[in-house]
């Protein structure tokens, strides 16, 4: 279980997150929605300390840390429990697909190379890239790169995988293949926090949807409730704007 308590973050004098509380149960897929500038990506990045929260507490399982006074050891421990899939993929450019997946296993988890290679090849096969093990990121399409990114995150066997708008940088025709992979691993019971604009995906895959605006959680609940019967006016406005098809039922 992941528990964020009272997480706040300011950039200079500008508050981006205002005392956020969020609980994610084991095996749950939590989707965070919200307009740009609502703080959803910042919140996600606070979970693995790529962004330093100004205050609050982060707990994953038995591990807990004070986000304001975190030691290097805490941060390192936290990052070992999490993995991230980036909007811009951020594959290691100078390494092949399989080396990208192996890197964390060999360097961080100290798993012998042969073993790491075997596991990495299996994961790349799982995300549909069995034929691209030795390709460099520059030889892969955006969708393929993002699938390598997902395999890299899976390899670490983290307690939670954080997805930061995983399909936003993709050409529209490549979005499907990436979402399909995420859907597949969601079914395996891997805990995920996903920031996305893909409403269809959120509706189908999420167990819990969080709507953020202006640095606070406006409303949260199961997708059926949040999408069909939003309570807050702000949520209704947002959903109306982002899913216009709801207004034109045939």
């Amino acid at each position: 279980m992941i528990k964020l308590t009272n997480i706040s973050k300011s950039f200079g004098r500008n508050p981006v997150l205002k005392s956020i509380d969020l609980t994610v149960n084991k095996g749950e897929v939590v989707v965070i929605l919200g307009p740009s500038g609502s703080g959803k990506t910042t919140l996600l990045r606070c979970v693995n300390y790529l962004e330093k929260p100004s205050s609050g507490e982060i707990a994953i399982g038995d591990f807990r840390m004070n986000a304001e006074h975190a030691s290097k050891k805490d941060i390192h421990a936290l990052r070992q429990k999490t993995a991230m899939v980036f909007q811009q993929y951020n594959l290691f450019k100078h390494k092949t697909a399989i080396e990208n997946v192996m890197e964390g296993l060999v360097i961080v988890k100290k798993i012998p190379k042969d073993e790491a290679r075997k596991r990495s090849a299996a994961l790349l096969e799982k995300v549909g890239l069995a034929g691209k093990l030795d390709a460099y990121p520059s030889q892969l399409s955006g969708g393929q790169q993002q699938r390598v990114g997902i395999a890299r995150a899976l390899a670490l066997e983290p307690e939670v995988i954080l997805f930061d708008e995983p399909t936003s940088a993709l050409d529209p025709e490549l979005v499907g293949e990436v979402l399909e992979v995420i859907r597949k691993i969601a079914k395996e019971g891997i805990t995920m926090i996903v920031v996305t604009h893909e409403m269809g995906f959120a509706r189908d895959v999420a167990n819990h949807v969080v709507f953020m605006d202006g640095g606070v959680i406006v409303e949260e609940g199961p997708p059926a409730q949040l999408f069909n019967h939003p309570r807050e006016e702000r949520t209704k406005q947002f959903l109306k704007r982002i899913t216009p098809e709801l207004n034109y039922s045939i």
Binding site: N48, L50, H76, R79, Q80, T82, A83, M84, F86, Q88, N90, L91, F92, K93, E103, G104, I107, V108, K109, R152, L156
Partner: peptide, 21 residues
Amino acid sequence: DRGQLEAAYAVGMTGRQAFTR
């Protein structure tokens, strides 16, 4: 690219590992 460093940290590397690797 800064994203390279972030990815290295996200994978769990220490500052030194991220720099040298």
